[in-house]
Amino acid sequence: MTASPQIDRNAIEDTAAHWVMRREEPDWSGAEQAELDAWLAESMAHKAAFWRLEYAWRQADRIGSLGETVRAPSRLAFADSWIGRNLRPMAIAASLLLVFGFAVMQLSHQPVTPRVEQAGQTIATRVGGHTVVPLDDGSRIELNTATLLRASVTEQSREVWLDKGEAYFEVKHSDTVPFVVYAGPRTVTVLGTKFLVRRDGDKVTVSVIEGRVRVDEVMPKGQAGSSSTVTTGDVAIAEGNSTLVAARSPERVESALAWRDGMLTFDQVTLGEAAVEFNRYNERKLVIADPEVARIKIGGTFRASNIDAFVRLLHDAYGLDAQVAGNEVKVTN
């Protein structure tokens, strides 16, 4: 049915879905069965797609046992709890259990409670840390490595001060109470959206995953600073008086969130830049003294905590050597 079945997975799947559906129809005919058989015989890719959809569709038969009740889909009871909201569909998926377990572990190591109840509570993560903090308004903040922030959420105001580091915000929508993040020389104001704020000293980077945020320059009283609106897929980089807003692909913005899974994603960055990223997450620091080596471009996804694997692969791929001295790993040619 498709001209180039090997190439277009989407077309194969669509055709497979068509057959799975058609075969349940009352007017399914012998001629059609023959056509389906011929299509399946054409390629193993066709069989793989058809068998897979057929199997999954059969799995979903259980819905049928519910009868009418499903017609007005109500959220499942446990969907209202925090864990339900966040881990709901994957409650049984080990990957998230691990991430969750990790978050809990991190919390237990730190002198903070996971809930922010009074104004101005401080939340911190250590190097390599990662913590999820639910706020009373239903928003949540996910702190990356070596991050310090304070939060104050009341019925009248929602304010967070990002003193250092990086945090991902999922802000519950409110028409009346804006959510404000003070990040040094910039403030970020939203009503409800998902975004990432990273602070390296006075440099502030805001990536918007969903929705729209306003980034304002902090000025002495009475003076007007610059103000920029940043929307989905955009990244604002603010330093000094300038705020650069760049449109990025959703994948790029998405990859800035890889740390939430404990990963680092690089897309053709230099080894020097990659080392800086790794060093944010580890007490043991990568040192790349040779500028020529630091300019090597790399890409890929790496576990943030696994410097050793990274170094071993630099050795395998580029013949680079590493010397360990105290808390430093020197990479040389």
Partner: peptide, 23 residues
């Protein structure tokens, strides 16, 4: 570590199917 996923009970399967429908 992902072996857990294979041991779904019928209730899990129903819940999962419902979630699939709801989304």
């Amino acid at each position: 570590m992902f072996d857990l996923e294979r041991h779904l009970t019928a209730r899990d399967e129903l819940r999962w199917a419902l979630e699939a429908l709801n989304q």
